[in-house]
Simulated assay, not measured.
Amino acid sequence: MTPRRQQILSTAADLFAARGFHGVSMGDIGAAVGVSGPALYKHFAGKEDILGQCLLHASDQLLAGARELLSDGGARSAVGQPSPDGADAPLVALIARHADFALDNPALIVIQEREWGALGAETRTQVRKHQLAYIDVWTDALRPLRPDLAATEARAAVQAAFGLLNSTPHSARIGRATMRDLLTSMARSALLPRDR
């Protein structure tokens, strides 16, 4: 993605989160990035396309990052020292990475939650495909640690953990490092067996 496209998406996400999708015009986005509204059409088909690309890019980042993290020992290097037996290192790494993403991208979390209905059907299908694959990565990391959970329960637990981690835009601000520690600790407690 070009830096200009990324700038447009980041700026638009902030505007959509602050004012809502319908409260933002192409002119507003253009003015915020220093171009005319019509100049945005060189990069995107329209406002709905910008929203869709915001959410698709976020889903792509999460999925690609999770896959990279878990390939060839990535989980170990991402979080420093794993637990003594290392069995939970992949899940701990996923939790830490998602917490960082949520803390660094609150606007994307807000528009994912609030503006889903403004997406076209095709874009919703694309975003949902990536989200389901992301859930699968997490579920595959959780299942060996929680044989007490059926596959459907493990998926539900993962999605509940996402709700916790994605609560950052609505959480009391206590400083990024403290909030990250709190979120990761709570997510680990929610997902991992009690004896870990």
Score class of each variant (00 low, 15 high):
Ala32Trp: 04
Val24Tyr: 03
Gly37Pro: 04
Arg4Ser: 09
Ala31Lys: 14
Leu56Met: 05
Arg143Glu: 12
Ser25Glu: 02
Ala17Glu: 03
His57Ala: 14
Tyr134Asp: 12
Val137Asp: 03
Leu103Thr: 13
Gly46Thr: 02
Gly86Val: 05
Pro193Cys: 04
Asp104Ile: 01
Gln7Gly: 00
Asp72Gly: 12
Gln6Val: 09
Gln112Glu: 11
Gly30Thr: 09
Val137Cys: 10
Leu62Pro: 00
Ala151His: 12
Asp104Phe: 00
Phe162Ala: 13
Ala96Cys: 06
Val127Thr: 04
Pro193Tyr: 01
Gly74Trp: 10
Arg176Gly: 13
Pro84Thr: 07
Asp140Met: 10
Arg196Gly: 08
Arg194Gln: 12
Ile174Glu: 05
Thr11Ile: 02
Thr123Val: 15
Gly73Gln: 10
Thr123Arg: 15
Arg146Lys: 07
Leu149Tyr: 08
Val24Glu: 05
Thr139Met: 08
Gly163Thr: 10
Gly20Arg: 11
Gly163Pro: 07
Leu55Glu: 01
Ala160Asp: 08
Ile111Gly: 04
Ser171Arg: 15
Val35Trp: 01
Leu165Trp: 02
Leu142Asn: 02
Gly86Glu: 06
Leu40Asn: 08
Pro169Gly: 12
Arg188Tyr: 06
Ala39Asn: 13
Cys54Met: 08
Asn105Leu: 01
Leu91Arg: 00
Arg180Trp: 06
Asp104Ala: 15
Ala58Arg: 10
Lys42Pro: 00
Asp104Tyr: 00
Arg176Pro: 03
Ile8Asn: 03
Leu149Asp: 01
Arg76Met: 05
Ser36Lys: 14
Ser171Ala: 15
Ala66Tyr: 09
Ile109Gly: 06
Gly175Asp: 04
Ala58Asn: 05
Leu132Gly: 05
Glu68Ala: 15
Arg97Ile: 00
Ala39Met: 13
Pro90Met: 11
Lys42His: 15
Asp60Leu: 12
Ile174Lys: 08
Asp136Arg: 15
Arg143Cys: 07
Pro84Trp: 06
Val35Gln: 03
Thr11Ala: 13
Val24Ile: 08
Asp195Val: 07
Arg67Ile: 05
Ala190Thr: 02
Thr123Tyr: 00
Lys47Ser: 10
Gly52Glu: 07
Leu55Ile: 07
Gly37Val: 09
Arg128Asp: 12
Leu9Phe: 01
Leu145Gln: 01
Arg176Trp: 04
Gly73Asp: 04
Met179Leu: 13
Asp181Lys: 15
Arg143Phe: 00
Ser25Gly: 11
Thr139Glu: 06
Gly65Ser: 07
Ser71Met: 08
Leu70Trp: 09
His130Phe: 08
Leu183Phe: 09
Arg173Asn: 12
His98Trp: 05
Gln53Glu: 15
His170Lys: 14
Gln61Gly: 03
Glu48Ile: 03
Asn105Trp: 01
Phe21Pro: 07
Gly23Ile: 10
Val92Pro: 00
Ser167Thr: 06
Ala160Leu: 14
Asp136His: 11
Pro169Gln: 13
Arg143Asp: 00
Ile135Met: 11
Arg146Glu: 01
